[in-house]
Write a protein that binds this DNA or RNA. Structure first.
Lengths: 141, 141
DNA sequence: CTTACAGTTAAACGACTGATTAAGTATCCA
DNA sequence: TGGATACTTAATCAGTCGTTTAACTGTAAG
């Protein structure tokens, strides 16, 4: 009792209240806005149906009917997913006559989809753990 | 009316019912299990709080108290998130006395986190669109 | 202008998620 | 053994997400 957890104020006090035995410097220097945006992208990728769709679009652009047929789903469902993906600027759309063609917005998305799917295909602990020693060079992306 | 959309049977008929004007071969050859797994990973990354945590763990392993302090959140909340991440085999845990240290499970996760955050930092359409012409070499990851 | 095709939008509803509070487990030290 | 620290688990509950049905918009063809 007697020390309720401090409400999430957005500063970085090294004061008491949280009895951590021994702190490293606390290099939290992560841009919150970037986290928010990246999480939104990941969340949009975090659905099997949407991911399948994106995996298809990675190869080439497709119109909605094609996606419907390939994914065995009805048009409103596909359209809703496309709308969500477009709102996150993950896909682009282009009209051609009666058809609307969708494609990935940029290469980064394609890379994310590919890396994710590759990881999913590999055995459980394929990439050896990053050895957790601080001071190793940053990941080269 | 008069042609209700076929219920999602799990085969791939090129029969009628879906009036697509002109199909490409339909190279849907995406492993559904891989999609499911990859989507699960993306979904786990798709939360700002969890992503911040993973961004910290990318640098070095941390115990729960450290994460609580750095992220300004209470322990059960952190613990729940860690549990979820561990269930998806995204983080590993190691006990040392009274403390439990968490780290990323492997390099792939670190790469995904890094790529996602980098993309989020860049301006809107930084990676030029992948030109959508089929036949270009596969993305080299 | 009317019909058919291609796609979007709206609204309702069930399922899942995430935060919170409280209680429980595990390890160390005196 | 008792207490304190470090962390986990359980249970509740509000908010969010995704699917579904139906209605609506836009384009081309006759």
């Amino acid at each position: 009792m007697s020390h309720p957890p401090p409400p999430p104020t957005a500063d970085e006090p090294e004061s008491a209240g949280c009895a951590v035995h021994e702190h490293r410097g606390g290099a939290v220097a992560i841009d919150p806005a970037a986290c928010e945006r990246a999480a939104a992208i990941f969340r949009a990728l975090g659905d099997p149906q949407r991911l399948r769709m994106l995996a298809m679009l990675r190869d080439s652009e497709r119109c909605v009917s094609e996606l419907c047929h390939a994914l065995h789903d009805n048009m409103p469902a596909i359209s809703q997913r496309l709308r969500l993906l477009k709102a996150e600027r993950i896909v682009r759309s282009r009209r051609d006559g009666k058809h609307i063609y969708y494609a990935l917005a940029d290469d980064h998305i394609a890379r994310l989809v590919t890396v994710g799917l590759l990881h999913a295909l590999e055995p459980a602990g394929a990439g050896r753990p990053p050895t957790a020693v601080e001071g190793q060079p940053a990941i080269t992306v």
